[in-house]
Design a protein around this nucleic acid. Structure first.
Lengths: 189, 189
DNA sequence: TTCAGTTTTTGCCATTTGGCAAATGTTGTT
DNA sequence: AACAACATTTGCCAAATGGCAAAAACTGAA
């Protein structure tokens, strides 16, 4: 659980006792490739820290196409904030792209932590803000780029991810077809 | 200032004394169309609540093209979180699209409020999370849509905005050229 | 190794979007 | 009204991307 603790410590101070409490609340879950962590239509009641592997968040648009909104890799939290914060049914799926090891916190566990650890809420809101800002900053410029530039930016920001993600998923994340992405890759070599 | 107070009350409770304190910390600023609220390269030290008018956040990409990242209309906060939270130079401009009336809080004023009003931090982090989630939810599906669908979605979500925003800015927000947008509009009528 | 199942690449052509410049329309000022 | 300044539309053509299906490459199990 060292990854998780180190991650949290970036956002606030925790003493040894608090660290032990946090560890005691985390449940380790292993997902096989293509397993779901959460599904559309259900209310999300847990939060996962990705200790190993890659998740993706996806949904189906009105044409029935499967769209990948983003990937979540090691040392990041996965949570459907829309559903978790407001307790409304989720509109998207969280699925394992590769086999994954997750550290999962239930809503009750988080509640306990926030009541016991003074800095907890401030840590969580810092993490929330940072990860949302990252998402906005990553997605926003893509609109102004063409397909090739998007792919290059992706390689640039996530050099280690491109090989671990099937082409079809990456294409849907980039907002282009799989064949176009394949041609772009050929074109770049 | 009623708009501001009503907005804040959606996110937490405030008594009359606290409301007066908040009002006393806000500075009213009027911007003329095309004036800047904040500029790239500078560290952002204030936060604005848009009481009237429309702002936009924009930057210049590596080709020198001006890109509009998003619009901020009445009853929303404008803040460059990257710059304000981490005190680093901003990479974008916040500019008035129309004449605007803003209620501005300095970093010091916000600090005072957070020390005096117990619920303040929780209100602010709820607002921050909500507005970031909205941005992600708005931008993210656009990647999977073609130009026409993006424009229609925009009309759908912001029917009142389209007429108030110059075509060139809307086009750069949608990630398409002005001529394409013009053709799309003709096509739709 | 072989085979079936899956993923990726490719060819062909249609459609969408961009680039550029000229024409047209709009707005505000004198 | 007349003009300048600015915004929008349009025509023409080139480039980018999509759609579809077949071929090729890859993967894992027997």
């Amino acid at each position: 659980m060292e990854n998780l603790i180190n991650y949290l410590l970036q956002f606030g101070q925790l003493n040894q006792q608090q660290i032990e409490l946090i560890k005691s609340k985390a449940k380790v879950i292993e997902l096989k490739k293509e397993d779901y962590f959460s599904e559309a239509g259900k209310i999300s009641r847990q939060v996962a820290f990705v200790d190993g592997g890659i998740l993706r968040v996806c949904y189906y648009n009105n044409k029935g196409e499967e769209i990948t909104r983003y990937f979540i890799d090691e040392n990041n939290f996965a949570v459907d904030l829309n559903s978790f914060s407001y307790q409304i049914p989720s509109s998207e799926y969280v699925q394992a792209v590769t086999d994954c090891k997750l550290l999962v916190f239930s809503a009750e566990a988080l509640k306990d932590l926030s009541l016991t650890i003074i800095a907890w809420n401030s840590i969580i809101s810092a993490i929330t803000a940072k990860s949302l800002i990252e998402k906005v900053n990553r997605i926003s410029p893509m609109l102004a780029e063409d397909a090739k530039a998007r792919y290059i930016s992706f390689l640039d920001k996530f050099p280690q991810l491109a090989n671990r993600i099937p082409l079809s998923l990456l294409a849907s994340y980039l907002g282009i077809t799989q064949s176009s992405l394949s041609r772009i890759r050929k074109n770049i070599r």
